[in-house]
Amino acid sequence: MEKSTWTTKVGLAQMLKGGVIMDVVTPEQAQIAEEAGAVAVMALERVPADIRREGGVARMSDPELILRIKEAVTIPVMAKVRIGHFVEAQILEAIGIDYIDESEVLTPADDRFHIDKHQFTVPFVCGARDLGEALRRIGEGAAMIRSKGEAGTGNIVEAVRHLRDILDGLRRLQALPCEELMTAAKELGAPYELVCEVAATGRLPVVLFCAGGVATPADAALVMQLGAEGVFVGSGIFKSENPRARARAIVEAVTHYRNPQILAEVSRGLGEPMRGLELEAIPAGQRLAPRGW
C-alpha cells in the first residue's frame, strides 16, 4: 500500500472536475456551499475582495478557523499559503487539510522561489497566467493548476486572458516539430520534459481549473466552454445579494455549460451580483496576478 502517490494527488483534482470550489470565511458559509453542491471549499479569513479593500499583509488563516470549517462539512477543504512559505504549508499538512493553494492572493513570503511541493504528502494547486508558468509549477510538484485571473474583482476579463494563454500555448506546442521543442522550453521558461509531454498529448498532465473574477453562472459557463475543467469562485458568491441561490446556480451552470436553455433558467432572479472592479481602476502595484515567478 503506497500513500500520497502522484496518482492520488492528481486523482483528487480529477474527482473535483466539473465542479465549483467556493471561498468561505465561516462554518455557516461552508455549509451553505456544501448544500448548494460545491465540490470543495477554500477556507480563509477574508475573501479576496476584502483583502484588496483592507490592504496590509495577507497571511495563512488561523488553523483554528480552518479546523472549524473542516468540522462543519464533509466535502474536501482547501486552504491558502503565501507563495514560498513552506512552513505555512507544513502547518496545513499537519492539521490534515485536503489541498493547499500556494496563492498570489496572499502576500508573497519569497520574491524568488516557490515551495518545493514534491516534499509534501498533501497535494498543491497553483495559479498560472500562461503555459510556461503552469509548467514551472507542475515541475515543482503542483498536482492541479488554476488560471489566475484577477481575484476579488468580479471581472472575468483576466481569467479569460489567462485561460486562453494557457490553452493557446498548448495548441502552439502541438504544432511544433520535435527539434523546436528545446527552444520552446527555453522561451517558455519551462522544464523540457514537460514541454515534450504536453506537445505530444495536447493537454496539461494535471487538472486545469479557472479562478479570479467569476461572478455569474454565465461567467462560469464561459470559462468551461473555453476549456476549463472546473471553477473556483472567490468573492463572487458571498459578496452577492443572495449567496445561496447564486451558489446553486453557478454549480448548475458548470454542469450544463453547453446548454443555453438551462443557463437561462438558472440565471433568472438571482439578485445583484458582487459589485465588480474595472481593471484600469486598480493601481499597478495592487494587481495580484503578477505575483509569482
Partner: peptide, 10 residues
C-alpha cells in the same frame, strides 16, 4: 480512511 494525505494505491 481520513483526510487526503491518507489516500493510497494498492
Amino acid at each position: 480512511f481520513g483526510p487526503q494525505i491518507e489516500s493510497f494505491e494498492t
